[in-house]
Design a protein around this nucleic acid. Structure first.
Length: 465
RNA sequence: GACCCCUUCGUCUAGCGGUUAGGACAACGCCCUUUCACGGCGUAAACACGGGUUCGAGUCCCGUAGGGGUCACCA
């Protein structure tokens, strides 16, 4: 059996799209599962739209997700001569021809096709036609001589058998008038040259696959296996749009999503293994199969992603998590402050994790530790406003006299003070929380007070009482 | 418009001719609780519709409807 080789072949026109990320993941998992190889191919034959920045964004995105690729990256822009060579073979075999149709003629054909309910737009005008001397001044494109009778069948690993009548297929452009290849040509040539065994890609390519198969046949090459996976839609069932969702993986990174969680979520979007939900990378490699890819499109659900993220957050080794958080803190706080408060932070880290489903929130929830000034939110303001100032002042002075500033003792102390004064615990605890953290919710307030220490805690309390 | 694909709880999905149609997220309720969470327990929630085939259909076939994709010298 020949070796499994898959590829992820984005065109570098923007960020790494969430759908692209899933496609890459499936290709990667399949290759790893089969002990094969996963390649990266940059489809940059459209010079006008391709940018280095986009190439970097794709690398960064894949790297973040931990999808490692074979060192040899194919850039299609560097294979131009190879594509032309293949076109020469095609012309020689009378499977391709020059087309001198003008822009006007082409748009007339499109109009005609549209008006007559035809799928095929180009009408084959130049199939068997020689140019006049005048027309020879026009730079021609090269078109593929697509079969006109019979039907083309593809046995797709996901979609099953898909057929189309060949009369529906028109003669696609292989080489543009400037001599650069089109996608239809370069994909076929590279998949063959790279010995790609399985092409896993979005089902927006399903129609293209039918045309590409004919090219393979004309070249007398064996086509790869195809697996066209359904697209990811937004929550309304429409194409993922920037307006409603973040569509670049980098945005999820910024949101504080862990790459492992992202991978797990993406894996379960369109693929399943019984009732499994949380699947480690190793497990995924072991059990991934194309058989279990669903045929219907799925909708992107941020809530589920966050849920999975919170699970990964809770199970992550503390050291690793700490490194990530410190890194992120560096973006918003100065180094000294982070260092000075690191021990305190560690004391309440578990509590913070419990309350966050992403790293960004986790940091937000720890602001009371790292911010020099406490800013009261609206709820905290109200809590302080409506508290019994005299009682709290009394309580503060009894705290002031306290020597044992442990979590446990602070709790005992507060409870008995509440009891002695016929108060509910929350009548004391909430004002403490509000003035110490500036917030109406936080981790266990006694733990927070312990972490902050007596001086700082009392300091903050005395600001408001 | 033509062609191709799809259709199980709100969402992701299990199911591969006989199931009380299962799980997860979300929602709701209860318990825990100083808050917010976490956790525990529970409730509600689906086979798009219509015909066949079959003793029997979520599962197979055909229509209808709805959704998506493709129709470039973009990929």
């Amino acid at each position: 059996m020949s070796k499994v080789k898959t590829r992820f072949a984005p065109s570098p026109t923007g960020f790494l799209h969430i759908g692209g990320a899933r496609t890459a993941l499936f290709n990667w998992l399949y290759a790893m599962n089969k002990n094969g190889k996963f390649y990266l191919r940059i489809e940059d034959t459209d010079k006008a739209r391709s940018t280095d920045k986009a190439i970097k964004a794709i690398f960064d995105g894949l790297e973040w997700l931990g999808l490692s690729w074979e060192e040899k990256i194919i850039f299609q822009s560097k294979n131009i001569s190879r594509y032309r060579e293949v076109v020469d073979i095609l012309i020689e075999r009378n499977k391709a021809y020059f087309c001198y149709a003008s822009e006007n003629e082409l748009s007339e054909m499109k109009k005609f096709a549209r008006e007559n309910g035809l799928k095929k737009t180009y009408n084959g005008l130049w199939r068997d036609k020689e140019p006049t001397d005048n027309e020879k001044n026009i730079k021609p494109v090269v078109r593929f001589k697509s079969p006109q009778v019979g039907e083309t069948i593809i046995t797709d690993l996901v979609q099953g058998e898909v057929k189309i009548k060949n009369e529906q297929l028109d003669d696609m452009v292989l080489l543009r008038s400037d001599g650069t290849p089109t996608y239809m040509l370069s994909v076929v040539v590279d998949d063959y040259d790279m010995e790609i065994s399985d092409v896993i890609r979005g089902d927006d390519h399903l129609n293209n696959a039918l045309r590409q198969i004919n090219l393979f046949h004309a070249l007398e090459w064996d086509p790869p296996n195809y697996a066209h996976i359904p697209l990811i839609h937004d929550s309304g069932g429409k194409k993922l749009s920037k307006r409603e969702n973040a569509v670049g993986v980098d945005e999820y990174k910024k949101m504080g999503i862990l790459p492992e969680a992202m991978k797990n979520y993406l894996l379960r979007l369109g693929w399943s293994h019984g009732n499994d939900e949380i699947i480690s990378e190793n497990e995924a490699i072991n059990i991934f199969s194309i058989n279990n890819i669903g045929k219907s499109p799925s909708r992107f659900d941020l809530k589920k992603l966050k849920n999975i993220n919170s699970i990964y957050l809770k199970n992550m080794p503390k050291k690793e998590l700490l490194d990530l958080v410190i890194n992120l803190l560096n973006d918003s706080h100065d180094k000294k402050i982070i260092e000075d408060n690191l021990e305190k932070f560690k004391m309440i880290l578990d509590d913070l994790i419990e309350r966050s489903d992403n790293l960004k929130d986790l940091i937000l929830n720890s602001n009371f530790l790292f911010d020099k000034e406490i800013y009261l939110n609206k709820d905290a303001e109200n809590i302080i406003e409506n508290s019994d100032k005299i009682i709290i002042k009394n309580f503060i002075s009894s705290l002031n006299n306290e020597k044992d500033w442990s979590t446990k003792n602070l709790e005992i102390l507060t409870k008995s003070f509440a009891k002695d004064n016929s108060l509910h615990l929350k009548d004391l605890a909430m004002p403490l929380r509000a003035s110490i953290t500036g917030n109406n919710n936080s981790p266990n307030i006694f733990k927070v007070m312990f972490a902050l220490g007596k001086d700082l805690s009392l300091n903050r309390l005395q600001k408001f009482y």
